[in-house]
Amino acid sequence: MSELLKGATLTAAIADRLYDRGGRPVPGAGVFRMELLPAYAVASDGGDFGRYLEGEAEPDWERKRPFMARLEQRRDDGLYQRRVRILSAMLSDYERFECDWAYRLNVPCGEDIRVLHRGEHDVPSLLGFDYWLVNDSTVLRMHYANDGKFQGAQEAPELLRVCRREARHTFREAEPFLQWWERHPEIAARRKVT
C-alpha cells in the first residue's frame, strides 16, 4: 500500500504532474475529479459550510479567491479541469452548499463541472469511490471515513483502466453544471438556516 497523501502533500502531488520542473505546464495535462459522497467533513472549506448553514450571503472571499485564481491560472496555462458530481436524489445541505458556493463560482474560472442527479439523470453503475485522475495516467483514490472526513489519497495504478473508462463515460453522459443549475433555482432558495 502506498502512503496516504493529505492536504498540501496531495495538492503538491497533483501540481507536480501538471507542471514540469521549470514551472511550465505539461502539454495536454489536466485533472478529472469524481465526487460521490452526499457530504464531506473537510477543512478545505475553511468554515464556509457552517457560514452557508447560518444563512450568510457568500463565502469567505479571502479563502475562495486564491482557489479561483489557481483555477484561472490552470485554464490560462491550457490545462483541462473536469469534474463529475453525482448528486443525491434529495440533495443534502452539503450538496446544495457545493453547488451554490463552489461549483457555480468555479465554472467561470475554467473548471468544467458536470452533474448526474439521481432521480433526474440516468446514473450508470459506478466504481463507488472518489478519485482524481491526473493527466489520464495517474489515479489518486480518495479515502473518507463514514462521516465524510478525509483520511487521505493514494496512488492506485491498478485502477487506471477502469477509472479512465468511468471518467470518460460519466463526463460524456453528465449535464453541464450551469445548465443544470439554471433549471433548479429552488436549490439555492432551500438553504437550511439554523
Rank of each mutant, 00 (worst) to 15 (best):
S2D: 13
A8N: 02
A8H: 11
A12Y: 00
A15N: 10
Y19W: 13
R24H: 13
V31A: 09
V31M: 14
F32N: 04
F32I: 11
F32C: 07
F32W: 10
E35I: 05
L37Y: 09
L37K: 13
A39F: 13
A39W: 10
A39D: 05
Y40E: 11
Y40K: 09
A41W: 03
V42W: 01
A43P: 01
F49V: 06
D60S: 05
F67T: 01
M68Q: 14
A69V: 08
A69Q: 13
L71F: 06
E72N: 03
Q81R: 02
V84W: 02
D93F: 06
D93Q: 12
E98V: 14
E98W: 00
E98N: 01
W101P: 02
Y103I: 03
R104C: 03
L105C: 01
N106S: 10
C109G: 00
I113T: 11
R114C: 02
H117N: 06
P124H: 10
S125R: 14
L127C: 04
F129Y: 15
Y131W: 06
L133D: 08
N135G: 12
T138M: 05
V139S: 06
L140S: 07
H143D: 11
H143W: 00
D147K: 09
F150Q: 03
Q154T: 11
P157R: 10
T170V: 15
F171G: 03
P176F: 06
P176L: 05
P176S: 10
F177P: 02
L178I: 10
W181Q: 01
H184Q: 12
H184T: 06
P185F: 12
E186C: 04
I187S: 00
R191V: 12
V193K: 13
